[in-house]
C-alpha cells in the first residue's frame, strides 16, 4: 500500500481557518468558545477536542513585516514517538498507508504518547481520560476521500495524495520559490523522526520555528531508549523480576507473617 501524505504549502495559506471548522465538524467535536490571547488564533494551542490549529506568528524582519499562518496538527511521523512510547498494545497503530491512528478502546490514558511526541500534539481529555489527535481522517481516507481539512481548503494550500508524488511537488514548488527570489525556500520533512507524512513548503526552511514548527524534532531520549536500543533492558528487568519472584518462592516458600499462626 502506498504511503499517503498531506502537503501544506504555507505560501498559499490565508489563515481562513476553514480547516479548523471542517476538522471539528467531520470529527463531531462540539464547538466551544475561542480564547483571546492577543492574536487572531482561535485557541492558544491544540486541545483534546481541537486537533487542527492555524498558528499566527507576526514578526518584523529586515525584509519587512511578515505574518505567518501555519496549520498545525499531527505530523504522522514515519517513526512516531507516540507509538514508541505507548505501553498499551493496539492503542496507537501505524496503518500501512503511514497514518498514525489512535484506537481509544485500547488507550489507557497514561499520557506517555504526549511525552513521546516531538511536536507536542496529543492531548488528554479530562473527561474520558483518553488521548486524542488528528487521524488524517483515516475513516475518510479508507474509503478514498481526502481528509476534511483538505476537502475544504479554498486556496489549494492543502493537498492530499501519494507521499512520493507530493514530496516531488513540494520540492518543485520550493524550487519555483527559490527562482522567485526566496533563496531559503524548502520543504519541511524532518529526518529526526524518519520524515513526516505531513509535509510543508516554507519560504524560509532554515527557520521553521518562525512558523511554530520545531527545527530538528527528535523523539525524546527517554522514550527512544525505552522502546529502542534499551528495550532489551526493560524486557530483561521485567522478565528478571518475574523469574526472581518465582525462584524466591521456590527457594523460600510463601511469605509468612509473624503472628499469623497465632
Amino acid at each position: 500500500m502506498q504511503t499517503v501524505a498531506k502537503l501544506i504549502d504555507t505560501t498559499l495559506c490565508i489563515g481562513c481557518k476553514a480547516c479548523e471548522l471542517a476538522c471539528q465538524e467531520w470529527n463531531d467535536q462540539e464547538f466551544t468558545l475561542g480564547v483571546f490571547q492577543g492574536t487572531y488564533q482561535t485557541m492558544p494551542d491544540l486541545a483534546h477536542n481541537f486537533w487542527n490549529l492555524i498558528k499566527f506568528n507576526e514578526r518584523e524582519t529586515a525584509g519587512g513585516m511578515s505574518w505567518l499562518m501555519t496549520k498545525y496538527q499531527c505530523m504522522h511521523c514515519a517513526d512516531p514517538g507516540c507509538l514508541r512510547a505507548c505501553p498499551a498494545p493496539g492503542a496507537i497503530v501505524q496503518l500501512r498507508n503511514g497514518i498514525v491512528d489512535f484506537n481509544h478502546d485500547h488507550c489507557i490514558g497514561c499520557g506517555y504518547c504526549i511525552t513521546g511526541c516531538p511536536f507536542d500534539v496529543p492531548r488528554l481529555s479530562p473527561a474520558t481520560k483518553k488521548v486524542y489527535k488528528c487521524s488524517l481522517c483515516s475513516d475518510r481516507t479508507a474509503v478514498g476521500l481526502s481528509p476534511a481539512c483538505i476537502k475544504t481548503c479554498p486556496t489549494n494550500c492543502l493537498t492530499f495524495g501519494a507521499r512520493d508524488e507530493l514530496l516531488r511537488k513540494a520540492e518543485s514548488r520550493a524550487e519555483q520559490l527559490r527562482a522567485d527570489g526566496h533563496a531559503q525556500a524548502g520543504v519541511y520533512n524532518p529526518q529526526g523522526v524518519g520524515g513526516t507524512n505531513v509535509l510543508y513548503v516554507l519560504k524560509d526552511a532554515t527557520e521553521p520555528e518562525a512558523h511554530g514548527l520545531p527545527k530538528d524534532p527528535t523523539i525524546p531520549l527517554s522514550v527512544a531508549l525505552w522502546k529502542g536500543p534499551l528495550k532489551w533492558l526493560g524486557t530483561l528487568t521485567l522478565v528478571g523480576g518475574i523469574l526472581g519472584t518465582f525462584f524466591h518462592y521456590v527457594r523460600f516458600g510463601p511469605r509468612t507473617y509473624e503472628g499469623q499462626e497465632k
Binding site: 464547538f31 475561542g34 482561535t42
Partner: peptide, 19 residues
Amino acid sequence: TEHFHYWTKHTAGSSQLQS
C-alpha cells in the same frame, strides 16, 4: 474572515473561531 457580517455571531462554528 471568521465571520459573515453581523449574522454568524448567531452560529456556533464562527462564534468559536472569533469569539
